[in-house]
Design a protein around this nucleic acid. Sequence first.
DNA 1: AATTTCCCCAACCGCGAAGTT
DNA 2: TAACTTCGCGGTTGGGGAAAT
Length: 339
Amino acid sequence: MGRSPCCDKNGLKKGPWTPEEDQKLVDYIRKNGYGNWRTLPKNAGLERCGKSCRLRWTNYLRPDIKRGRFSLEEEEAIIQLHSVLGNKWSTIAARLPGRTDNEIKNYWNTHIRKRLLRMGIDPVTHNPRLDLLDLSSMLTPSLYNSSQMNISRLLGVQTLLNPELLRLATSLFPSSQHRENQNFLQQNVQENNVNSTHDQVTNGQFMSPLMQPDQVQEFQNCAPIFSNDAQLMEPQLSNQLHNWQCNEMSNNDYVDLQNYRYYGSDQSFNIDHLTSENSDFQSNGSNNMISMTNVSTPISSPRHINSTGTITEDEREGYSFSSMMKFEFPNNLDISCFL
DNA sequence: AATTTCCCCAACCGCGAAGTT
DNA sequence: TAACTTCGCGGTTGGGGAAAT
């Protein structure tokens, strides 16, 4: 496989672009359009390699590029999309008009990723870092009753289960009388890890264990999520995920994890995507809820806007976090003593 | 005010995929 | 089918400005 020659091998210029170079590139593309990046610099009178020209155009000079700070909606969309697509920056950028893959990648690495880590969330899996948060220590075996939460109903749905969810479940229900359930779960954790690793390796990319390859493809092929700047992606993604479900569900028992709600009933197990509406931190009358916010961050209030109308980093932290992470426990599982 | 450290982001690098000969 | 070219993606770097000392 050949590779395009590197700039410095041809004595071409590298480093920051000058305004004159920008102007030359813009003028040329306005007049002739862009197509053959290899011949473009020569035709445009630039001492740059085609690669550098393409990068400069797509990341900076393109007229439809939106400048300025990412909005909360955009930030949420990035987090949601990243939880499904992983580091597919170009695919994520395609859903955010005016934003480049490079810009989103930089924003993720310099802002969002750090924030997630501060909050105890693994930025790769979007799961809570259970090594930092030992939930099992918060719950005692006496809380568990097999009639309340029958883990065996998870039978037959292992391919949809997130291994982290299974680990969480095993840590939540440590009673020795349910060792059988644990064995089942641990076995499934191992199997899911194998499957998950296999998927990631064979595809050479991160893929949510919840999604089959054709589902990822379907998701990637869907239209841009914004018809204007204010719109969010949830309806499309949520609808798609709904379509992948097939059974009526009873949502008496569920755990919210990694932006998805895992429902269990005696007949079925289902997954629902959490939108910003249903994942806002709140008190739910029919269910006991424990918010990760209570555990690992001091911020538990909804979105705050300061007097200038902008949102501070800390405020973003609290708001975004509430939309990305929440645990809920069934009504009949009393956790009030932990709150 | 001077120096050091930290942080951001534009740009580069290397690789694989797709296209062409 | 193989060899080569071009394009695009994702990871990484380093220059420069901001913040801290």
